[in-house]
Amino acid sequence: MIDNLDPKQAWALLQNNPSAVLIDVRTAIEHGFVGHPPKAIHIAWKEFPGMQLNPTFVEQVQQHAPDPSAPILLLCRSGVRSVEAAKALEAAGYRHLVNILEGFEGPLDEQKHRGKLGGWRFHGLPWEQS
């Protein structure tokens, strides 16, 4: 089953459950230069160039989160890639998957800018850049 939590709910789950694992499924460039939550494990779902699907995504997650019953929280830019990644992990036997709604940057506003209507950073949650 895949749950959906907003960024603040996801942060609370991470703080209250030491077995919870946060996986950032964005590209390496997004993770490093746009920023990421502290202790987020970067495992790209798709990567540049060409946004090719990462063929070892599930195996990489299993290395960092071997317990299929642990809460696995998935974060992307706006909440789309994270759902796809969650479905792949569900098919691999993970049972407590959480899609972080709004993602790290949130949806586009009228000027086609992110970060003004929602997302991890918009809500003032901890983040850092590489």
Rank of each mutant, 00 (worst) to 15 (best):
K87P: 04
G106R: 04
D6N: 15
L53M: 06
A65V: 01
D24F: 11
V21S: 06
V98G: 00
I2T: 11
H64Q: 00
F57L: 00
F48N: 02
Q60P: 02
L75N: 03
I2Y: 11
R77Q: 15
G119V: 05
E105R: 04
W127S: 06
N54C: 03
L75S: 01
C76T: 00
R81G: 03
E59S: 01
L97F: 07
G35P: 08
E84C: 04
A65C: 15
C76N: 09
G124E: 12
K116E: 13
L101R: 05
L97N: 00
G119S: 07
E102S: 04
P38W: 07
P38R: 05
R95H: 09
I43F: 09
A44S: 15
F57R: 01
G106Q: 10
L125V: 06
R77W: 15
G50I: 04
L53N: 01
I43T: 00
F48T: 00
F104M: 04
G124V: 02
V25G: 02
S130T: 08
E47D: 15
N99R: 02
P7W: 15
P38K: 05
D24C: 08
K112G: 07
K112N: 15
H31N: 04
H36N: 14
V21W: 12
A20F: 13
L53C: 05
P7G: 10
P107R: 15
W127Q: 05
I41K: 06
M51H: 06
G32T: 06
E47S: 15
E128W: 05
G50E: 03
F33L: 13
V83T: 08
Q63V: 02
G118D: 07
A12T: 01
D67P: 04
L89M: 13
D3G: 12
K8M: 14
L73R: 05
H36I: 06
A86E: 09
G35N: 11
Q15F: 07
I43N: 02
N16Y: 05
G103I: 14
Q60Y: 00
A70H: 13
V34F: 09
H36L: 11
Q9Y: 13
F104H: 03
L53T: 03
N4T: 09
